[in-house]
Simulated scan of single mutants.
Amino acid sequence: MARRTVTVSGAGQAAVSPDVVRLELRVGHDAEDVAAALVGASEGMTRLASIVREHGVTDADIRTLDATVGQRWDSTGTPVGFTAQQRLSVTVRRLESVGEILAAAAASIGNALLVDQVRLDVSDRRDGLRRARDAAFADARDKAEQYAALCDAELGRVLGVAEAGAVPLGMRQGKLMAAAMDSAGMPVEGGDLDLAASVTVTWELR
C-alpha cells in the first residue's frame, strides 16, 4: 500500500528594526557632444562621492551602479546634444546624516542631482529570517496536524522541506528611528521592516 503523506505550505513573518538607509543617487549632464557630457557627469559624480565621504560614509558603502549616455532631441525631433548620467549606490549607517548628505549634494550639484531611491533596510537580516522561517514552519505544522486529524491519523516523520522564499515585505510604521533631518526637511520614520518566509513541508501520516 502506498505511504500516506500530507504536504502543506506555511508562511511566517518577523519584524526587524532598520539600521541603515540605502540611497540611489544619479547625476546627469547635458552637452553638445558625447565627450563633454561624460566629463560633466563625471565631475558631478566626483563631487557627490566627495560629499558622501565627508559625511562619514566609507568606501565599502559606496558603489557605482551604472553610467549611460544618450542623444537628446528637441520638440521637432532635431538632435540637440547628448545627456550623460551616472548612478551611485550609498549605504548610510548614521541615519541622521541622510538629510545632511542630500542637502549638501543638492547645494553643490543643483538640479543635475536626482534621487532615485531612499530605502530603509537592515544590515544583517539573518536573525530576522531565522525567526520568519521558524514561524513559517510552525504555520505549516499547525495546518498539517489539522489535516492529519481530519484523516484520523497522526503526523510522522518529515519527508521533505522546500523553501519558497524569504523576502522583505515592507515597512510597518512604529517607533521613530531618526529625528527630522534638519537641512533637507525629510524625517526618517524607521518603523519595523517585516521579513517574510514561506515553506512547503511533507509529513508522513501514521
Rank of each mutant, 00 (worst) to 15 (best):
A132S: 11
A2F: 05
L25E: 03
S89C: 01
V92A: 07
T202V: 09
V52D: 04
R119P: 02
M45L: 14
A166N: 05
L113Q: 10
V92T: 10
E145V: 05
S108K: 13
A36P: 06
S97N: 14
S17C: 01
A135P: 11
D139A: 07
L88V: 11
E96R: 14
V98Y: 04
V188Q: 07
G128Y: 08
D142C: 00
R47C: 00
R94L: 10
A105Q: 07
A2S: 08
T78M: 08
R93T: 08
G170E: 02
E204V: 00
I101M: 12
E163F: 10
S108R: 15
V20M: 06
V20T: 11
V167A: 09
R125H: 00
R94H: 13
D124F: 04
D127Y: 02
I101P: 10
G128H: 04
G40E: 11
N111I: 07
E163A: 12
R94C: 11
E145M: 15
P79Q: 04
R172A: 08
T5E: 13
L65T: 07
A105M: 05
V201S: 05
V57N: 08
T5C: 03
G12H: 03
D139N: 15
S75D: 13
E189N: 12
S9F: 03
R26V: 15
R130N: 10
E43G: 08
E24T: 15
R3C: 04
D127K: 03
